[in-house]
Design a protein around this nucleic acid. Structure first.
Length: 300
DNA sequence: TGTATTTGACCAGG
DNA sequence: CCTGGTCAAATACA
């Protein structure tokens, strides 16, 4: 669980993260250039976004490693900590597994056009729970991959309607898809090949603008904020079909959505915080189950 | 009839 | 003890 090549101290990882993020920024810049080109290859853009995503994931690994090396000693109780979960990220006998996620990504999506929930991300999810969260106005819905039983895919996600803006949803992904998208396209609606996305430009601009690295105050702030310039009608998604809203308040400080400190209890998370309008979602974030980074063993 | 969702209960971490 | 994550029976839907 701590086999990052250049590990040792979290500080080294921090520098790595910074350089990775700079690289991400550069890639975004390139992507933007391509988008300005009159006749841009979608595949090229996809490749770039894939790289961006890969680097993001890599940074997650660095941050996670930094965390585990920065705070290797768990203070009090001996029964707590990560004992016994190193090999089985999700499948333990317990019903709870806080802070054991191997791969976490946070995304803010918009249910543009008044849809009931955020857009489909290309995978098929099955809702297995819903909970009123303390301090949140809206309940949090829990999803896991439909192929969990058939293929042992451990990917899960949590969807929660944003507090102050019901059109936005915070989606937290845990784990990676190990399932193979069955024939017809990943459990369903994989959108048709993307054409040049007219919204991508502004999206990327926002993305670039929101990409901020602040490695100065002990912690690391990594935030990606993308504001959709428009809302467009789009298909609803199976997400958040639950209807009973619970009376609660926001878990996040109001107005602080664009910056999530990485320390604190954000377990091994890089907050890729995006507000992506529906049609752009697939364009930017395609959670390919076979998605892999060149340095795969960050969390092992 | 099979599959997905809803919902209350259970469980463990903090 | 409180809270969040998961389970599983009941229910809804195609």
């Amino acid at each position: 669980m701590e086999s990052v090549e250049g590990n040792g101290t979290g500080r080294g990882n921090l520098q790595l993260v910074v350089s990775e993020l700079c690289r991400i920024q550069e890639l975004v810049r390139q992507l933007e250039l391509h988008l300005h080109a009159p006749d841009t290859s979608v595949d090229l853009c996809r490749a770039l976004t894939a790289q961006i995503f890969a680097l993001t994931d890599r940074s997650i690994g660095f941050v996670a490693a930094a965390h585990s090396s920065d705070a290797p000693t768990t203070p009090s109780s001996t029964s707590s900590s990560l004992s016994g979960v190193s090999d089985q990220p999700f499948r333990t006998n317990t019903k709870k597994r806080k802070a054991t996620a191997r791969w976490t990504s946070q995304v803010r999506v918009s249910a543009a056009g008044g849809a009931e929930g955020p857009v489909d991300d290309g995978h098929s999810w099955r809702k297995y729970g819903q909970k009123d969260i303390l301090g949140a106005k809206h309940p949090r819905a829990y999803y896991r991959c439909t192929h969990r039983n058939s293929q042992g895919c451990t990917a899960t996600k949590q969807v929660q309607r944003a507090d102050e803006d019901p059109v936005l949803f915070d989606v937290v992904y845990h784990g990676q898809h190990t399932c193979r998208p069955t024939g017809g396209g990943g459990g369903g609606r994989r959108p048709p090949t993307n054409q040049h996305n007219p919204h991508a430009e502004s999206l990327l601009q926002s993305l670039r603008a929101g990409l901020a690295v602040d490695a100065d105050h002990g912690g690391l702030n990594t935030s990606v904020c993308v504001s959709p310039p428009m809302t467009s009608p789009s298909m609803a998604s199976p997400v958040a079909s639950g209807s009973n809203g619970g009376p609660t308040m926001s878990p996040y400080p109001a107005g602080a959505y664009t910056e999530w400190p990485l320390d604190g209890d954000l377990q091994e998370v890089v907050s890729v915080f995006t507000a992506v309008s529906a049609p752009s979602m697939d364009y930017l974030f395609e959670f390919d189950p076979t998605f892999d980074v060149d340095a795969p063993n960050f969390f092992m």
